[in-house]
Amino acid sequence: MKIGLYFGTYNPIHVGHLIIANHMAEFADLDQVWMVVTPHNPLKKKATLLEDYQRLQMVFLATEDYPKIKPSDVEFKLPQPNYTVNTLIHLHEKYPTHDFSLIMGEDNLKTLHKWKNYEVILDHYDIYVYPRISEEEESIELKSHPKVHIIDAPIVEISSTFIRNSIKEGKNIQPLLPPKVWEYIDHNNFYKK
């Protein structure tokens, strides 16, 4: 089974995340997309970052109607800080018959060369890249790498930061969130202060 791993803090998950995950599940050669919730670094507790399991619950609520998209808490149990290469090794050991690959935005591809053991990732894992709006056309060196696949996914410019700030300001941002996620956030008064 071919699994695309889509990492994020998902604080909160929004329709932009879902559009990209669903596009990858339906139009790239992947069988499933696992939305890997990144735990917060205990040394850098941010007031705006919800607890790990609250963010996992939002991903669960957002994806339960999408059979090809699954929430994943795999990094919750791994040593901190999380490095993608370690997560990939762990998943390969746990699911030896699965073929894992990464899903990332063009902006992350630009900085991939700064990741821990990025050469190992490039040697062993496919990377599916979705476009981002960029002010200037930059040539990204790794775009032509044989393991990098640029996917013509919709460009969605919604950020979790914008959503959190808007909720704090009392704005209605309901259309930017999956309905069950909106209800969960509203019911728990998340991001209001």
Rank of each mutant, 00 (worst) to 15 (best):
S72P: 01
L78Q: 14
V156G: 05
I127P: 00
V85I: 12
K110A: 13
D152A: 14
N82K: 06
S72N: 07
L109P: 03
M104S: 02
V85D: 01
H98R: 03
H113N: 13
P81H: 11
K110Y: 09
L109R: 06
N117G: 01
S101Q: 02
E135Q: 15
F76T: 10
Y83H: 10
D73I: 01
Y95F: 10
Q80C: 03
M104D: 00
E106K: 07
V148M: 09
M104L: 14
T111H: 11
P81F: 03
H124T: 03
P154R: 06
L91K: 05
P146Q: 14
E136I: 14
Y130G: 07
I121M: 10
K143A: 10
T97E: 11
T111D: 12
V85Y: 04
D99M: 00
E119V: 07
D99L: 10
G105E: 07
T111Y: 09
F76N: 13
I121L: 07
P71Q: 09
F76L: 15
T97I: 02
H113G: 03
N86W: 05
N108G: 02
K116I: 02
E136H: 15
D126Q: 08
L78C: 04
L91V: 06
T87P: 03
H113Y: 12
L142M: 13
D126F: 08
L102R: 05
Y125V: 08
